[in-house]
Every structure is written in C-alpha cells, then in structure tokens.
Nucleic acid binder design. Structure first.
Lengths: 131, 131
DNA sequence: CCGAATCCAATTGGATACTG
DNA sequence: CAGTATCCAATTGGATTCGG
C-alpha cells in the first residue's frame, strides 16, 4: 500500500474550535448515515432531475417516510434542490447541487479504500471469530 | 474551488457486485457512526496504547457501555488492538493498528472539505429557514 | 479497573391510512 | 403523485448495579 502521509494531516483536527468540531462532526455523521450518501449517488447517476417516485425505486429498501426525511435534510443543507411543479397530480423533482456533487466526490477516496480493504476486514473478522 | 474530477470516479460504484456494495456501505456506515471515528482519532493522538479509562475520559460524552461496544467493534474489524494485562486490578490497553491509521487518513480529505464548507452549510440552512 | 448485566427512557423506522 | 399523520415495533443509549 501507500506510505502514510504526515501526522500533521490528522493533527489539524486539534486546531479546530469546539464549535467547528461539533458542527463538522454533525455534518459528517449526517452525510454518512444510512441513506444520504446513497441518495446523493442515485441523483448523481441520474445525471439530472428525478421525481420522488423514481428516487424511491432506485434507492431500494428505504421507506417513503425515511426518504422524505432524507431528502428534506439534504435540501436543507444545500446538497440537493427540490422543485415543485404545481400540477394535478403534483410533480416534484430533486436534483444534485454543485455542493452536493462536490461532497460526493470527497467521499470517493474513502469509498475506494474501503473496497480495496474489504479482504482485510473479512480477515480481521475471521481472525476475531476464532478467539 | 477545484474543478470536479471525471464522472468515472463516482461511476465505479456501479461496477461493484451487490455483495461488495453492501459490505462496503456497512463499513462506511460503521466507521462514520457517532463514536468510531472519534475513538480512532483519540488513539491516534495518543501516539501509543491507551487504557480504557483514559479513552473514556478523552472521547468525552460517551457512556461506558457504548465505548465498550465501539472498541469491540473496532477490534473486530482490525482497526485497533486490545491487550489485556492479567493483573489485579486488571489493565487493558487499546492501540491503533496500521489499518486503523490508514483508514483515519482516508477520512481526512472529507473532514477538511466539510470544515472548509461549513459556511456554505450554514448559509444553506439560513436560506432554507427563510422559506 | 474493566466491563457485563439489567432496567428503562428515548429515538428511530416501518406500515397504514388519509389529503391537496 | 407526493407527501403528512398516526400508530406501533424495534433499536439505541444512559444509568446503575454487580462481578472477575
């Protein structure tokens, strides 16, 4: 694997104010909960606006209630937009914002790393199970 | 900010098997839950083994029960080691593994990005609150 | 000291029914 | 169609007590 970057890269965490630290961890927690990242990914893959029903289908396994909550949260944080077309029946479209896209990109290295190390995790668990 | 990297970087998600995808997301979820990352960070900052009580103090706000669960999980995944010294009273030390350190490093860019964009999130929420 | 066990409060999530 | 509202089951987390 690669040589670990300097300690400094992590130590900067200590330079944050408590307020920053709390808010940052709140965002990290939020974004990496069960559905938000997947939802963003679906919207990214769509390459354009997606109706509520389509998102519901593609995310898969999520309930309608939780999807609504997730979308509201992502909208609130400026990661997606919500557009209501006042028709009957109503149409609502969700779309990734540049901010949301950027965030998604930042998660890619971690994602890559995890996938690369899946065997290591499996091995660790197997090892742990023996004891 | 920077120009977005090619689409390809994200699209590789689609190339995974369902099994890989599920396991990878499980790991991502796990590692980015409320305490695991912070616990790893504490152990990293310590620069060496840390007793249970010390971790409990430094993480701050976590209960003994949840810390135990967290540490067990991290150990199971090979991210930390747990060493029991059979004394009276017993001493148990936890230490970051190279794997744990590597994972921690992978999260740094995302962490950085979130902190940089804290104002953007605040602005988005403020904007959302007006409506 | 480390942590397992127990009990309990609070939060979360699914299913269902209903509305603009 | 896109939610909101309601109810309920399951999970989570804290506090406390006990044990090796």
């Amino acid at each position: 694997m690669t040589v670990p970057p300097p300690q400094q890269a992590i130590d900067f965490c200590a330079t944050m104010t408590d307020e920053q630290d709390e808010f940052a961890r709140e965002m990290l927690e939020r974004v990496s909960a069960r559905w938000p990242l997947r939802t963003l990914q679906i919207l990214q893959a769509a390459g354009g606006p997606l109706r509520f029903s389509r998102v519901l289908e593609r995310v898969g396994g999520i309930s309608q209630k939780v999807l609504t909550q997730t979308l509201r949260m992502l909208e609130r944080d400026g990661l997606i937009t919500r557009t209501l077309y006042p028709q009957v029946p109503p149409r609502v479209e969700y779309e990734l914002t540049p901010l949301g896209y950027e965030l998604l990109l930042q998660t890619v290295p971690l994602w890559h790393w995890i996938i690369e190390h899946l065997p290591a995790f499996t091995a660790a668990r197997h090892e742990a199970a023996k004891r």
